[in-house]
Nucleic acid binder design. Structure first.
Lengths: 356, 356
DNA sequence: ATTAGCACTCCTTATATTGGAGTGCTAATT
DNA sequence: AATTAGCACTCCAATATAAGGAGTGCTAAT
């Protein structure tokens, strides 16, 4: 066999094992490989190769006399070697597109629907992470007087996210005062990066004269309180029940671990937030998520962005034994759709020309 | 035995069986009853009574030679006969109180925290249902111009709920116009029941003169769009993973059924919404929830109200075999706390004197 | 009405028994 | 040197069998 070098075959066999295991959920043995994939070698040869692959850490044995099962390292190789990414079927793409056409929902709801669709199409758990809006820019900040001590601050970002927060301000302001302050603020902060607001506002204040002492006070409180609403990231999780249908999690302890993370959204948020510097779809296999309780899971995730700023992440969580090819295509498609939706909103606001 | 009539004993035995089953999760037999509860009758007598109770539909047999297990009817009797409700321990009450002291969170977040606490203290799944705000009254409605076609409507209710929605209005309004309209609106609608706004506004409009044609148009759209934001009820669910720890749900099919309902929040919302005419804590046992998938669960729920209007519901979902006494006390306490919190907000707004 | 006595049921647990899937090794083959 | 046939060996998974026990239901005695 000159054509198929040893290395080549080894890799091919590894891929076959993993591919087959992903679909069958059963450890795969040498005979199976030959039967289903018509390799022109004997079972014994396969066995030798399998033993090699095990020595190199790509596969394991549940017990002496059972077939092989991929290790994390094996999955990693498999995912990295997926060259031609499966595309979604036309039907699927249309179904998704349809959902986003002529819709004018508030962004929060879009995200919720998105995670629901992710879960339905993947049959795993779908998520969308709307991270802190600190990377976003201010479109408007509206101060509304509620009663004596309470002011409602509504922040609208350039990408269309809306956050509100009740602020306690002990000094009595009347509506007129507040309105003036409001206009002044919006003249100065529109378009600013939210994370810069603190420093910027102080700088700009020197150019405008602030009418009253107390307004300065209020501003201070605003800076302290209103903009830590920007910190609160939101995580939409849907289809958590799908996890139950996975044969991989027939063990109750494994299940409980996973639900520990799901219930404690904070944990999950942390995992997801620390992992998205890059662009493009990323796959976190087992321990790669650096979360002990997720060692039996894989996460397929991508970011979405408004303009050039990374805004948040979306994706799916499932067992390590998942159809990566399909899932990557799915997540990728959604990330693109969301990008489109976000940038449409942004264009409409800034009035930028469509080209470029 | 003149003192203990037959009926009395029968009921007592029923209570013992259920009480013991709730704590042990094992079918209870005649011997056990005598051992643990020191009845002065023989096992045979107990057996006769048990057989009677089974004939009457309060108990069943998993199989011929096992102890008795309550039926839904049995649980119903048990719950109805719980006269002296257990109170929470001081420690627990303090822990809860502490959480609500000097906090000034937006109401949505309060609800989320509340459901989390419900789940933690019950070890089951906690929920808070913020129903459609239609039963609430308007405190303020603020219109904020976003860009050409989009207006952000922020509705603040008397009880402190905040809803926002982006409204599409094709005609271009400038901020000044909008501001005027806004002031006009708030002069007229503050304090109105949200469900009456449609009719009321039309009536009131005849007393004020509306400046421009287009404002009328805008108003119409507002009425159509802004106030169906009132329809969206929100369901906060926490601690779903706790369900996994229940030995009652060691069966995967049962688990899946429950998670079907949990994932499809809409279903759960419907169940909960149709069930809260009454005041006070209610217990829905098994099929009483009229939801097939919840036939293995019980729901302990109570409403909370602002003033005299029922606002929403909160409670816990767990297995039928739950410590009802404790759970009822827990849910009751939370409902009272939330009532207090809500009415505090309301008082602060209306400036009503604290007494009465 | 209550109870002792006892046969009977059926679950639960433990223990063998078996078949088979799959491996790893050795020695023969190309 | 790589491949392969042959075979012993391992261990799981399924099935059968047995023993123990918890608990019932019935009958007859109190």
């Amino acid at each position: 066999m000159a054509r198929t070098s040893l290395q080549e075959r080894k890799q091919k066999i590894l891929q076959i094992v993993i591919h087959h295991y992903i679909r069958s959920a059963k450890p795969v043995g040498s005979e199976t490989i030959i039967e289903k994939y018509k390799l022109e070698v004997s079972p014994a040869t396969i066995r030798n190769t399998l033993a090699d692959l095990e020595k190199e850490g790509f596969l394991t044995h549940p017990h002496t006399s059972s077939g092989r099962v991929p290790t994390d390292k094996g999955y990693r190789f498999y995912v990295d070697s997926l060259v031609q990414l499966q595309r979604l079927t036309q039907e699927e793409e249309q179904r998704i597109d349809h959902e986003y056409e002529n819709q004018r929902m508030e962004l929060g709801r879009v995200m919720q629907e998105t995670s629901k669709m992710l879960s339905m199409l993947s049959h795993y758990t779908g998520f969308v992470l709307t991270p802190s809006v600190v990377n976003d820019q201010v479109r408007r900040l509206e101060l509304i007087k509620l009663d004596g001590n309470n002011i409602l601050a509504v922040l609208v970002t350039v990408s269309g996210l809306i956050r509100h927060k009740v602020i306690v301000f002990e000094g009595n302001t009347n509506s007129a005062e507040l309105g003036e302050l409001n206009r002044m603020l919006n003249r100065n902060i529109a378009g600013l990066d939210i994370k810069d607001i603190g420093t910027e506002i102080i700088r700009k204040l020197h150019t405008e004269k602030v009418k009253q002492e107390r307004n300065l006070q209020l501003l201070e409180i605003l800076l302290q309180q209103a903009f830590n609403l920007a910190d609160e990231s939101e995580l939409y999780l849907e289809g958590t029940g799908n996890i139950l249908s996975q044969p991989d999690f027939s063990d109750y302890d494994k299940l409980r671990n996973i639900f520990k993370v799901i219930d404690e959204k904070k944990m999950l948020t942390d995992v997801l937030e620390t992992k998205f510097e890059d662009r493009g779809v990323r796959v976190l296999i087992g321990e790669e998520s650096t979360c002990k309780d997720l060692e039996e899971c894989s996460i397929v995730t991508s970011t979405y962005r408004a303009g050039d700023k990374t805004m948040g992440a979306l994706g799916i969580i499932g067992p390590k034994r998942m159809e990566y090819s399909k899932m990557i295509a799915l997540v990728d498609y959604f990330s693109k759709i969301i990008n489109k939706t976000l940038n449409r909103q942004k264009k409409e606001h800034t009035g930028e020309p469509r080209k470029k």
